[in-house]
Design a protein around this nucleic acid. Structure first.
Lengths: 183, 183
DNA sequence: GCTAAAATTCAAATCATGCTGAACAAAGTA
DNA sequence: TACTTTGTTCAGCATGATTTGAATTTTAGC
């Protein structure tokens, strides 16, 4: 289908808008707030270095909100702070590599959510172990629960290792996953 | 270390409590509400078939809340409704296989969150394609954005395929992932 | 069919998350 | 030094998500 009469800039703006919204919809997937995802989405799709004011204007959010969220995005390495000569404002630009972005987000989630869970699970296991319980560890209920906890631990450890591969060797893993998903 | 003097049932109750909390902490990981995760966690760790009333009592939540969340858990196949002869209450029991549970949760998330995003992304791509734009597709900005959208699509499709493998052949994939994560 | 227990529903109340905006700090300019 | 522009912080508030509980429906037993 051929283009209607609308001008290109308007179309780009519309697609940009749609993309930012979509990126916001994915925020829960990455475990970040909607606004943080939108800021990142805007920077990713435009590819430009935008000032805080520009971001504020385009997303219709407050000054403080931009500042707080940008800080996290920069800390995480998803966005770079860029200076322009003769301009004292900060500008911000997104990393462009999709695998790198995913790697960062996965690592953050792992650190914040998986690691503490593993610690707690290990603690649960410890409390039900033979060393802690002595003869009582033979109790069928205790044994059953220990088994369930161990199954879970095994599974999560596997996920953890998988995540680690992502972080340590995106490229190699990319190839491996591709092989894995081939017909 | 050997057990202190505390009785086993109390220890089991404590570990149960800790586990339920932990499972609740993982709720955002699965994209479900904390209470839904807690109900499932309780059923998983006890292994028993519990009545709605019992769940309500142990988690300190309302009757309606149990009913609503249980419904979803049953719909998703994470929990089975069990009848006991001579008792007209419903009892509920969790699936025990960790891979099966993960499969279900991943499939739900994919359906609810990944699929719609892919549809929207494809729509964005379509709007920036040569077929839609004609000569305007050569505009550097348009090309750059199309490229970014395509990179993302490629990546998400890969994730999608990976998720599909989980759903279709947990066991085979389990082995594959294990191989992948070996030293 | 009637009754009572159990399950479900959903409007209203509650709660948590994350946003706003005003106050403040820092950094550049004259 | 005083002023202006930009960036940061956080208490209080707004919004949306979750829960409650009373009304309603369903179910099983008689």
């Amino acid at each position: 289908m051929k283009a209607n009469g609308s001008r290109l800039p308007q179309l780009l703006a519309e697609v940009e808008q749609q993309f930012v919204e979509l990126w916001g919809d994915m925020s829960s997937w990455w475990g970040v707030s909607r606004t943080m995802a939108e800021i990142h989405g805007l920077l990713y799709i435009t590819g430009e270095a935008l000032s805080a004011e520009e971001i504020q204007r385009r997303l219709g959010i407050s000054r403080g909100n931009v500042s707080m969220n940008i800080r996290t995005l920069v800390e995480w390495g998803l966005v770079r702070r860029v200076r322009k000569r003769g301009d004292r404002r900060d500008y911000f630009q997104s990393v462009t590599d999709v695998w790198e972005m995913f790697t960062v987000l996965a690592a953050q989630r792992k650190r914040r959510e998986i690691d503490p869970v593993l610690r707690t699970l290990e603690h649960c296991r410890e409390r039900l172990s033979t060393e802690s319980l002595g003869d009582a560890a033979q109790d069928p209920k205790a044994r059953q629960r220990l088994e369930r906890i161990e199954n879970l631990l095994t599974f999560l450890r596997l996920l953890e290792q998988l995540a680690e591969k992502f972080v340590n060797s995106q490229r190699g893993l990319q190839a491996a996953v591709q092989r894995l998903t081939e017909r």
